[in-house]
């Protein structure tokens, strides 16, 4: 446990020493400010100029969901970039033959960032929410979003050879969020085209609070993680 904690502090140190990763890690806070203050102001301008009761307000929940997903996505992206950097320097294999071992390394680089990002999501919603949240559903949604972030890390690390490729793949991994707006805009059965995306079920869970959607999102995330995890471990050693 001590080695895992030491390894995690090294992750934070590496993020702190990289301006881009600091910006990435703080992006969700900036987004929170924008969603909380700019979006309602924009809504007021739109409503008065279009003379309607609401333009953006029906989608405030979607802004909240974006914010919940953004924190894990960005933090896990930063962690994956550090992992790619360490892999290039031969450190991932070396740390596997120290008391940290492969499992400890993965906990410190993927597990802890994902866990902390769930807490960060809840904190961000606490400060910047646009809609009221039930505590249980918020906790569930944050947990599911941290699993999405975990999958993003696995995807980036296993599919990129280096940090530069990782940044390019990072843009591609944004597609994982595509399921988020679907329940807001697509009400026919066409929406099930997105049923393989955990973010789709996450959005439905956040909207309807059904345990079934929570479990489905959990299952789709777990399936993705299971496939990618073995590739990651193979790459580490």
């Amino acid at each position: 446990m001590r080695a895992i904690f030491i390894s995690f502090t090294m992750l934070l140190r590496q993020i702190r020493n990289d301006g881009m990763l600091v910006a990435v890690s703080l992006a969700s806070v900036l987004a929170g400010f924008f969603f909380r203050f700019a979006v309602p102001a924009l809504e007021r301008i739109l409503c008065s100029s279009l003379v309607v009761d609401a333009v953006l307000e029906p989608y405030y929940r979607l802004f909240d969901l974006l914010l919940i997903l953004l924190a894990p996505y960005m933090l896990c992206f930063a962690a994956a970039m550090v992992m790619l950097d360490e892999h290039e320097q031969g450190l991932t294999r070396y740390l596997s033959v120290t008391p940290l071992q492969t499992r400890g390394y993965l906990i410190s680089r993927l597990g802890l960032p994902a866990g902390f990002s769930a807490l960060a999501s809840m904190l961000l919603i606490g400060f910047f929410r646009l809609t009221p949240w039930n505590g249980f559903i918020l906790a569930g949604t944050s947990m599911l979003s941290s699993l999405c972030g975990f999958s993003v890390s696995l995807f980036l690390f296993s599919c990129s050879r280096n940090k530069v490729e990782g940044m390019a793949m990072g843009k591609l991994s944004g597609l994982l969020m595509i399921g988020l707006p679907v329940p807001f805009f697509l009400h026919s059965s066409w929406q099930y085209l997105f049923s393989l995306f955990p973010s789709y079920w996450l959005a439905r869970y956040a909207l309807q609070g059904s345990v079934a959607w929570f479990l489905t999102s959990l299952a789709t995330s777990s399936a993705g993680m299971f496939i990618l995890y073995r590739r990651v471990v193979r790459k580490l050693v």
Binding site: Q14, Q89, Y94, V97, P99, Q101
Partner: peptide
């Protein structure tokens, strides 16, 4: 691993 040391061919260090 408390009793095993490994020196890989390519140096593995934080640059």
């Amino acid at each position: 691993y408390e009793h095993v040391g490994v020196d890989f061919e390519v140096p593995s260090l934080f640059e």
